[in-house]
């Protein structure tokens, strides 16, 4: 078609192409229309999928709110600040499950965030090649273990170990230090808030590690090489190049982990002790929102009891929402500072 310089041929070619182009135009219009139709369908399908999420989410919120009306009408705001949870007199308060949920997640994050980041840094910066895969796979396997297994392991293996070896040591070690002595006050039951927090730390570790590792690997080598070229130590490269470059991803991983820690049910139920009490000691038994629901929903008879449990679910929903919103806000502020 494109043989310039040979006039007659061009003409013929031009003419023929002109003749073809009429037919082709119709054809092309058809094709285009078909494509447009395909595009429209595709757009609607994706939109429908997106809307489904919104519908499901609002459905869940709606039914949680609807279900919690009887309890909220009866107890009002006091529901949040009452510690008593008495199915016999139908006096319910969410304070101890809320405390337990936040406390266990806090312990889990205090341990899992630094350890997870260190593992990810080791894997990406320091680990010899042959060791990377085994450690990486081990971390991913941790994520694949069902939570009931963590619960059973926690109850049968981990809790007795803590009870016999770790907790007596903690009690005697911190016995004379003012604040810590309350925090680690005995008796060593083996199960309790601390045990639940430790199990959660192990459970959320893979989330933090694998996401951090992926984002650390995405750091352009040239940045790191430049820093090393300036004579930076590995720690300085990690602290001033890798972490700032990847903090959005890292925070994302941490929030995902926190989300799992807040909502984890089975493993926590096994090892937390399930007592509706707030105690100064983190070795004392407590309860979390999800553990309370899992324990009591099946046998909850009566409207107020059931409704109180649903209200707990609503509170957990709100807590998770606040955590996510807070994470977003933090990311926005970080990005804003970066812009200046």
């Amino acid at each position: 078609m494109n043989s310039s310089g040979d006039r007659p041929v061009v003409d013929v070619a031009f003419q023929s192409s002109a003749a073809v182009s009429v037919a082709e135009k119709v054809d092309r219009a058809k094709v285009l229309q078909k494509l447009r139709l395909g595009d429209t369908i595709f757009r609607h399908v994706t939109r429908l999928a997106a809307i489904t999420v919104l519908v499901i989410l609002s459905g869940i919120i709606g039914s949680l709110i609807y279900g919690s009306i009887p309890a909220l009408e009866k107890f009002g705001f006091n529901f949040l600040i009452t510690e008593s949870w008495n199915p016999v007199t139908e006096q319910f308060g969410a304070m101890s499950p809320i405390y337990g949920t936040i406390m266990t997640s806090l312990i889990a994050m205090l341990i899992a965030v630094p350890v997870g980041l260190f593992i990810a840094l080791f894997l990406t910066e320091l680990c010899p090649m042959w060791l990377r895969r085994p450690i990486g796979i081990a971390i991913e396997l941790l994520a694949g273990i069902p939570s009931i297994i963590y619960g059973i392991w926690g109850l049968f293996v981990f809790a007795p170990f803590l009870q016999q070896h770790v907790q007596p040591f903690l009690i005697s070690a911190f016995g004379d230090i003012p604040v810590l002595s309350t925090l680690f006050a005995g008796p060593p039951y083996g199960i309790g808030v601390l045990t639940a927090g430790l199990i959660l730390a192990i459970m959320v570790l893979p989330f933090i590690t694998s996401i951090s590792r992926d984002v650390f690997e995405a750091v352009p080598p040239v940045l790191k090489e430049a820093a090393y070229g300036l004579g930076c130590t590995t720690w300085e490269v990690a602290r001033y190049v890798v972490l700032p470059f990847t903090r959005v991803g890292v925070i994302g991983g941490v929030m995902l982990a926190l989300g799992r820690a807040l909502g984890e049910t089975m493993a926590v139920t096994f090892v937390i002790g399930n007592a509706h009490r707030i105690s100064g000691s983190i070795m004392a038994p407590g309860t979390t929102i999800s553990a309370t629901i899992a324990n009591e929903f099946t046998e909850a008879v009566g409207d107020i009891y059931t409704s109180s449990l649903i209200t707990l679910g609503l509170i957990l929903f709100v807590i998770t929402f606040i955590v996510l919103a807070f994470a977003r806000l933090m990311l926005m502020r970080l990005n804003g500072r970066l812009g200046q």
Binding site: S84, F270, N274, A275, N295, E296, V301
Partner: peptide, 14 residues
């Protein structure tokens, strides 16, 4: 009396 009660003390196991 109920299927679950508010225990004054102790740990709960499932």
């Amino acid at each position: 009396v109920n299927t679950s009660v508010q225990w004054p003390a102790g740990i709960g196991a499932k």
